[in-house]
Design a protein around this nucleic acid. Structure first.
Length: 261
DNA sequence: ATGGTAGCACCGCTA
């Protein structure tokens, strides 16, 4: 079985590329982030035509998460208990959806950006991650294979950014964010991609600006964190940077994990 | 050459 995660940066503008990528990548389950669509705008039919069931959660033009599966899709959960909201008044954003696909408890996660170190969005990001870790620990407690897939908006080590000088005073690399990410590892989750895609200089995201992709100026911020029983089944992983090329690409590359059996 | 992109919805916001 093959699972993947991809921040598509608008499903409506990217659907042709997503369709073509599914056809050639042959993934069984795809966690999608940043659909930038409400449920009624999501192109369900395009996925169905390829043999995938889809669960999508989108409430505005921002955020939006989905799971597409051709190995079953059951027990869909929108959001997670205790997830903090944003705005005034604080309301839950469309940043998490879970479903059981082929025996794997899949989660598509779009972690809040943080924006800047002193921005209120940073506290929201850290709180959101703390609550997620608390919940995810419970999901995996009985040995269920859990895959926390998504855009984490954190570069956990210096090797995960093209320049620490550039990011020194910016979000994504701060000690607080890295601690929030590391807390998942402490809870038993494993970055199942890194052993198969060693760095430095290996990224999943490149800004659209300043020819970042061509200059190899990226960040590794998209991850599949597996519970121990999932991690034990990982046979390989790739970051499909070919998909970042050409006109009409998302600014994120898909990340694919091959599982035994 | 000291700026550059992209997407959505609206003329700014988010990334």
């Amino acid at each position: 079985m093959r699972i993947a995660t991809w921040n598509v940066n608008s499903i409506r503008s990217r659907i042709d590329r997503v369709e073509a990528w599914l056809a050639r990548s042959q993934v069984d389950v795809l966690a999608i982030q940043e659909s930038k669509a409400k449920d009624e705008q999501f192109p369900y039919d395009r996925f169905r035509a390829l043999g995938y069931q889809v669960a999508h959660h989108g409430v505005s033009q921002w955020n939006g998460v989905a799971i597409a599966s051709r190995v079953g899709l059951d027990d869909v959960q929108v959001g997670f208990d205790g997830a903090p909201g944003w705005g005034e008044p604080a309301t839950a954003e469309a940043r998490a959806i879970g479903a059981t696909c082929g025996g794997i408890r899949m989660w598509s996660l779009y972690v809040p950006n943080g924006r800047a170190l002193e921005d209120p969005h940073m506290a929201y990001k850290l709180s959101w991650l703390d609550r997620l870790r608390d919940q995810a620990t419970g999901w995996a407690a009985d040995g269920t294979p859990v895959a926390l897939c998504g855009d984490w908006n954190i570069a956990p080590t210096d090797d995960d950014v093209w320049s620490m000088e550039y990011y020194a005073d910016k979000s994504h690399v701060s000690p607080g964010e890295r601690a929030a990410f590391h807390a998942f590892l402490d809870a038993g989750f494993v970055d199942v991609v890194r052993p198969h895609t060693p760095g430095p200089g290996v990224y999943t995201y490149w800004d659209y600006q300043r020819l970042a992709f061509q200059k190899r100026r990226g960040m590794r911020i998209d991850f599949v964190l597996g519970s121990p029983s999932l991690a034990a089944r990982v046979a390989g992983a790739v970051i499909d940077r070919e998909e970042r090329k050409g006109t009409g690409a998302s600014d994120h590359a898909p990340v694919v994990v091959q599982l035994d059996a």
